[in-house]
Amino acid sequence: MKFCLLFLSVLFIFIATSCAKSKFVEIDGSSTVFPITEAVAVNFKEKAKDIRVTVGISGTGGGFKRFCRGETVISGASRPIKESEIELCKQNKINYIELPIAYDGLTVVVHPTNTWAKSIKVSELKKLWEPAAKGKILKWSDLRAGWPNKEIHLFGPGTDSGTFDYFTSAIVGKEGMSRGDYTSSEDDNVLVQGVATDPLALGYFGFAYYWENREDKNAKPRLSAVAIDSETGKPPIVSSFETVSNGTYQPLSRPIFIYVNSDALNRSEVKDFVAFYLEQSSTKLIRTVGYINLPPVALRLVKDRFTNRTIGTVFNGAKAGTTVEKVLQAKK
C-alpha cells in the first residue's frame, strides 16, 4: 500500500512539474567539438544566467540524426555534413547554417627517441596507411630506404572517429579507406600512451592530444611531431598554432563546425548564443581547449554567413586540405 501511494504521488509530481519550461539551447554532436562548445557555454552562462544550454556528445553522425529531426538547434561536427544527412534534413524541412569555428591539426607523432623520421612525405603516408599496405609495409625500411630495418608499430583512431574519416580522405584519397592492421582506439589518450611507450611507434591524432602530451610533468619529451612534406616544393611543416591557422600545414589541417538550425535563430536565446559563439571563436578560448583559431579573414566570412543567414553547405565535397577562407570565397 505504501509503495502504491508513493508511486502514485511521484507520478503526480511528474505530471505537475512537467509543464514548467525555461529557455533552452539544445546542442549535441561531435565529442571533438564538445570542449569548445562547453567552454563557450560556460562563458555564456555568466552573461545570460537564465538561459539553459545543454551539450551532449552523441558523435558527429548521431548529432546530425538528432539535429535533422529538429531535436537540437545546434550540432557540432568534426567533418562536413554528408549526403545522407543532407537528405534527412531536407525530408524534415530543417534548414541549417554551416559555420566553421576552428581548426584542428591532425598530427603524425613518433616516440622522442626516433631519430630518423623527422619529416614524412604525403605519398609515404599514403603508402603506409592505404589498404594495400596491410601485411606489406611492416618495417620502417619498407617506407623509405635508409630508415632502420626495424618493425613499425602503428597507432590510430577507430573507424567511428571523424579524425579517421578526415585522415583517410586527406592522405589515402578516399574517406574510410585504411589498412586495418594497426592498434586502434576511440580514446585518443590510449593512442598517446601507446606511442609514448614504444620507440618504434607511429601514430596520428588531433593536435590537442599531441600538444598536451609533448612532454611529461618533468619537461621530458614524450612525443615528437613529424613534419609533413606536402610535396609541392615547400619545405616540410610541423603542426603548430601558427602553421595550422595560416594554412601552411597541409593537408592535415581540418576545420571543425557547428551547424545551426536557421529557423531556431528566431528564438533570441539561440541567436544570442550563436553570436556569442562566433565572438568567442576569435579569442584565446579556442587555444585553451586545444584547438586553433581560424585566421581573421576566414572568421569574417563565417560571421557574414551567420548575419546573412546563408543556408546550406559549401564544405560537403570540398577537397580535404583546402583552407576555410578558400572554400568560403570560392562559393561567394
Partner: peptide, 14 residues
C-alpha cells in the same frame, strides 16, 4: 542522450 554539459540542476523528472 544523457547530456555531458549542463550548468543547472534537474528540477523536475522531465
Amino acid at each position: 542522450g544523457a547530456l555531458t554539459y549542463l550548468a543547472f540542476l534537474p528540477d523536475s523528472p522531465m
